[in-house]
Design a protein around this nucleic acid. Structure first.
Lengths: 125, 125
DNA sequence: CACTGATACAACCATATGGTTGTATCAGAG
DNA sequence: CTCTGATACAACCATATGGTTGTATCAGTG
């Protein structure tokens, strides 16, 4: 049975787009274990506070992080679910790959014990 | 023991960047199971041949696909390894997440059966 | 060789992206 | 209320990106 997969709808664009920048990936990593405000986050990178703020906004739009007001700071924390969504897509690709290998093996097995495949082809002309 | 992970080096930028476009993701998907030339690929999308060609080039630079000359066509085929590289990074994030949960549970367990943590703190002043 | 299918690549354009600085808002501390 | 730490957001700039059209190369076919 084929696993007809729904792939590549545009919803994934912002998700992978957000992950396509090393600063943003590092923010995601930090926000997994730490509980830092935007200002604290910004201190780790060689760019302005506003730039980091924009990266955080991109990540937030992609659903990869969410901000929560804690006192005067807004704490950034990573959203596991979004990471899993991305991973699942890659898993599906891998699954497709395996399926293709399986199909190829089947073909080889068939052709292997049945030379009449060729005969059929030849009897056609 | 902490699993000090090396994350977010810039090498991943083109990889995720390539995946951040639905047309390109669809090309990757198609190139997993089919063996199409660039022209055949292009026929699936509502854009010029040259545009698809550029997408293919982006994917190639990211290592996600490779082209192989077959007769006059250049057949596009997906590179599983690159997909796995991307997936492994997401796996590491997930691992970090689990590690954090574990640490939190440990903390809770400690605080739970040991009120002397507070006592120590108070005996300090 | 001439022809043509398939690809490659350059030039160009509009918009998106990643960075900057400057100003405005918002929530606690005094 | 005032002051200030922390954040938000607008305006701007340079470069990257995704698309176009046009031209050049490259490999088989007749």
């Amino acid at each position: 049975m084929v696993v007809s997969v729904q792939i590549a709808p545009p919803e994934f664009d912002p998700l992978f787009g957000a992950l396509a920048d090393h600063t943003r990936r590092d923010i995601v990593r930090r926000a997994i274990s730490a509980e830092e405000g935007v200002l604290e986050l910004a201190s780790h990178y060689p760019m302005s506070f506003a730039a980091v703020q924009k990266h955080v906004a991109v990540l937030e739009r992609a659903g990869l992080i969410s901000k929560q007001r804690v006192g005067r700071r807004s704490v950034v924390r990573t959203n596991l679910e979004a990471l899993l969504v991305a991973r699942r897509l890659l898993d599906q690709y891998e699954e497709l790959w395996r399926a293709r290998i399986d199909r190829m093996n089947e073909l080889i097995a068939e052709t292997d014990g049945a030379i009449d495949t060729v005969e059929t082809k030849e009897s056609k002309r």
